[in-house]
Amino acid sequence: MASNRPVALVTGASSGLGKATAHALVEAGFDVVGTSRKTSGSTSSGGVTFLALDVTSDDSVSSVVQQVIERFGRIDVLVNNAGLGIDGAAEEISVAQAQRVFDVNVFGLMRMTKAVLPHMRGRGRGRIINISSLGGFVGNPFMSVYIATKHAVEGYTESLDHEIREHGVRVLRVQPGPFNTPFDANSVQADTPVPVYARQRAIYDEVTQEQLRGGDDPAVIAKVVVAAATDRKPKLSYPAGSLAPRLKVLRRILPARTFDKSVRKFNRMTA
């Protein structure tokens, strides 16, 4: 089983960006293990070996990492892709629901990271690529909880990257904008709707649908993930797609008030 090809582990690889990333990594010469909640047992498709993994379970995480190391002898790249979306006003999302989203998007990512680090540190090499978001550095109405998770990922990534660089391991973040996947279908609905937000939310939904339809092809983002996995001199941040790199520049050069106005205008909010 063990070969000399580098080994990548991609979480949430059954659909969307994770699937595209897994296939792009196979094409780039990696042995790829993809995980998802829904896989039963271990199956293989398109060069990707699938394992069942629930990132909210400590046991599941450590057992999957152990299995991959036993079968392939190493993990060169971990792509923390598994994540949930959640739309809704902050008031409409209960704390319990927010905690569940954090448990996947943030603590799941931390569990995976902590499970592979002893191995990567031991080898003195390795790369962890965290799928962040445009929402990792820009705020947007009706996405407060999702964006909070991605801001957490941003800070965790940047801090950890400093800690373990001297051990030969890099932690990077890929920041895609809206792209065309069933991610929206996987989104969690706010559990406590508040009528006063209904009108503005309907507008937000419309704007988002437009955005997703005109969004990037996941294969474009996957290419950026592969670049992060293979660049000889990796960068901490990889904004990906058509929107995120531009917004990153705008955020940096526009005055705060102008940027704020443009976000409101974009979401068709008054004043």
């Binding site: 070969s3 000399n4 190391i69 002898g73 190493r74 002893p118 191995h119 540190r121 003195g124 001297e166």
Partner: peptide, 18 residues
């Protein structure tokens, strides 16, 4: 000076335990 770790290749895995 940090001593460079050796890659064990396949057949042997390495990890840093605490």
């Amino acid at each position: 000076r940090k001593i460079r770790p050796t890659d064990p290749g396949t057949g042997v895995t390495v990890q840093e335990l605490v």
